[in-house]
């Protein structure tokens, strides 16, 4: 796997973090810049150790940021930008996995746990009527006898 090798290289080069705010690179339009920054957080710096391109100072992260900025400035939608990146680097580059069949287990499992857990709790609930405050007739009679004394 190519990315494994890339990661091994990244182990040697520690990424001094967050150059995304470098004023020399920023887009002139603040709304577009903010939009690009939001996208940076969802894109992995593929040579770094678990960092987004928003945080990383690696050269590749810088290149990816410039690429995203250019596309955003050209009016590309989020989906287009991401599709381009996935085309080049594979799904590995997305920090937010797609909602796809292959990722269904990932996205659904926490909520399935809630439903399953609720189901188990509901099914295993024992009838609450076992615990009753009502006294039986003989008990009532005994109680009456005791309180009379």
């Amino acid at each position: 796997m190519i990315w494994r090798r890339l990661l091994a290289i990244a182990g040697a080069v520690f990424c001094l973090a967050n150059a995304a705010a470098d004023p020399a690179d920023q887009l002139k339009n603040p709304a577009q810049e903010a939009h690009a920054r939001a996208l940076f957080r969802e894109i992995r710096c593929v040579v770094c150790q678990s960092e987004s391109i928003d945080e990383s100072d690696a050269d590749l992260a810088h290149d990816l940021r410039q690429l995203v900025r250019q596309e955003v400035a050209a009016g590309a939608s989020d989906a287009q930008v991401k599709a381009d990146l996935v085309g080049r680097y594979g799904e590995f580059i997305l920090l937010k996995p797609r909602f796809s069949f292959a990722n269904a287990a990932l996205w659904l499992s926490p909520f399935v746990v809630v439903l399953l857990g609720a189901g188990v709790v509901f099914l295993r609930r024992r009838p609450a009527t076992v615990e009753t405050d009502d006294l039986t007739e003989p008990e009532r009679a005994r109680l009456a006898a005791l309180t009379d004394n």
Binding site: G90, L95, K96, P97, A105
Partner: peptide, 27 residues
């Protein structure tokens, strides 16, 4: 479970289909 799955999912998919995926803060 969300954290467990999010942490291990890249390994699971890698093992099952060989695809490299990332699970990051947005998830």
């Amino acid at each position: 479970v969300a954290i467990l799955f999010g942490t291990l999912f890249p390994l699971i998919r890698q093992a099952l289909s060989g695809d490299a995926v990332s699970v990051g803060p947005p998830y």
